[in-house]
Structure formats: structure tokens, C-alpha cells
Amino acid sequence: MIEVGALRALRSVAALGTLARAADELGFTASAVSQQIKRLERQVGVPVLAPAGRGVVLTPAGQAIADSAPEVFQALERCAEAAQSASEGVPRGTLRVVAFSTAIRGLLAPVLSRAAYPQLRVEVTEQDPGEALRSVGAGTADFALVHDADGLLPAPLPPSLARRWVHTDVGDVVMSRTHPLAGLEAPLDETALAEHAWVTSPPGTVCHQWFRRLFADEPDVRHRVDDFATQLSLVASGQVVALIPRLARPPLGETLLARPLRRPPKREVHAVWRRSAEASPAIRALLSELEPAGAKVDG
């Protein structure tokens, strides 16, 4: 009989292309993953991997096994969830959550601080949305928070996953109370913003994309910093302003203030989980804590 661990190893290698990357995702050594693959080959009697440059590819037999793997994992997960649901629906065990950093700060941390489920252990790992979707799909995480990057989810959502909208994040301009912009009437427009110096997130980030869309011409960018707390320390100097998502914003204190934009950038935040885990009391509990009024399951 094929072992579940070996099946999971093959699926990860198929998705990532090398034993080393699969090992990183699964939390094993490359040697351990290689041994699982060899054990699988002994069990089925045929090779399942073939070398391809510096990586590997699946043989036709390996591809056939990998294609059947989701049905196996979903059936096993439904068995576990049925057992949990039968136990009065009490959230218990370990829930592995992956999310982008500002969702951890602004959404998960407040929920975890007030939720009281003594039999449930929640483990949170920071991952970008694309990686988070892959982790949930592969079964190395149970629940994810992802953002749509101004209208597009980071990857098409496969049929095996479900999602639910939980939050809309908005960007505001943050400035020192002594800055000239602080005296203008809100909401602010692009004309008023273009005359001032900025600290921004580095190119390639969602927040930098938000920033560049504000201006037709090249703005005066003095600093490029990924950490929002560091951005705010530079804003406190009174020389620059910053575009900060509300989820990423700590309390501004007495020296800083936030002003809304006339056309504010937005991103939608979704919770994602496997449909086979739909009955999980732990997932339902976390969704209930995160769920705003009127949220609906997306197909």
C-alpha cells in the first residue's frame, strides 16, 4: 500500500521541481524526501521521477500517481474532520495558518488575543499570497489569508479550495502633524501630493504599485524601505510622507496623523481553505472570528 507521506513528497516534488525545494516546504531533509520517493517506487514497482537538468520531472507513472493524490488527501481529511465534528464540534488540535505580514498584524493577532479555545493550537507562518495558496492546496497549511493585489488573486483558485472575503484594506497618507499636507482639507488628491517628498515600499511590492498609480509623473522619492514602522520613523522627521495600508499601521501617537485619499488604493483580503476541510470546527471557529457582516462563501 502507498504511504501517505511518500505520496505527499511526490506531490511536492512535482509542484516545485527539485527534492531540495520539496524538502524545504515539507520541513524534511532532501535525503528524507529522496528516501520517501524511493520507497514509493518500490511500492508501485516503477520509477516515478526522472532527472531533468538540475531538477527532476515526473515519469508518466509518477504523473498518474500525483494526479490521483488530491482525491486521497481529501478523503483522509474528510475522515479526520468527521471525527472532529462528531466530538461536539469543539475546536481542537493544531490549525496551521499562513498569511501575509500585515494580515497577521491587523487581522489575526487581534482574533488570537480574544479567542478562547483551550484545546486548539494555532500556528501562524508568514507567506506571500501565491505561496500561501500553494501551501493550503498541498496540505502543508490548513488556512490562509491572501489579498487580491487590486483585483487579481495571486493565482487561479483550484476547485479543491474555497474562499471567503473577510476584509477590505485601504491605503492612507501618513504625515507629521507639522507637515504642510496636515493643514489641507481631506480627502487629498494627486495634485496636492505630487509636490512633496516620500518614503515608499520597494519596487515589486503591492504598496509600491499602489504608490506609483497615484502619479502621472515621477514623484520625489527620498527613501525606499520595506518595514512600515521604519517608514513611520522617517515620516516623523517631517520631511517625507508615506502611503500606508491601514492593516499595517500601528497607533500613530501624538506626532503623526493619517489623511484619506480621494481615490484610495484598496485590496480585498480573503480566507482560503480546502473544501475537504469544510467541516473542521477549528476552521469554522477562525472564520467566525474573522467574518464581517454579510460575508459570503465564494465558489
Score class of each variant (00 low, 15 high):
239 Q>G: 08
205 T>K: 05
272 V>F: 04
207 C>F: 00
293 A>E: 10
180 P>Y: 03
38 K>T: 10
294 G>Q: 06
248 A>Y: 03
92 R>H: 13
7 L>R: 03
65 I>E: 06
205 T>D: 07
246 R>Y: 05
63 Q>I: 08
217 D>F: 06
187 P>C: 13
93 G>K: 01
269 V>W: 02
273 W>F: 09
261 L>S: 00
202 P>D: 12
39 R>V: 03
4 V>H: 13
269 V>P: 00
61 A>L: 14
6 A>V: 00
285 A>D: 13
37 I>C: 02
178 T>E: 07
215 F>C: 02
3 E>S: 12
12 S>Q: 15
259 R>A: 13
120 L>Y: 04
229 A>I: 07
192 A>R: 08
174 V>G: 03
184 L>M: 04
218 E>W: 06
109 A>V: 06
252 L>I: 06
226 D>Y: 00
225 V>M: 07
244 I>N: 04
243 L>Q: 00
197 A>Q: 07
90 V>P: 09
68 S>N: 14
75 A>W: 12
22 A>T: 00
260 P>N: 02
249 R>I: 04
145 L>V: 09
223 H>R: 03
108 L>D: 14
55 G>Y: 05
255 T>R: 13
208 H>R: 11
165 W>R: 01
9 A>L: 06
36 Q>P: 01
65 I>G: 03
77 E>K: 13
166 V>D: 01
79 C>W: 14
53 G>K: 12
270 H>V: 03
47 P>S: 12
204 G>I: 01
81 E>D: 12
51 P>L: 14
172 D>K: 04
29 T>Y: 09
228 F>R: 02
175 M>H: 08
67 D>L: 07
2 I>R: 15
11 R>A: 12
113 S>H: 10
299 G>W: 12
71 E>R: 13
128 D>M: 08
298 D>Q: 11
224 R>L: 10
295 A>W: 02
272 V>H: 02
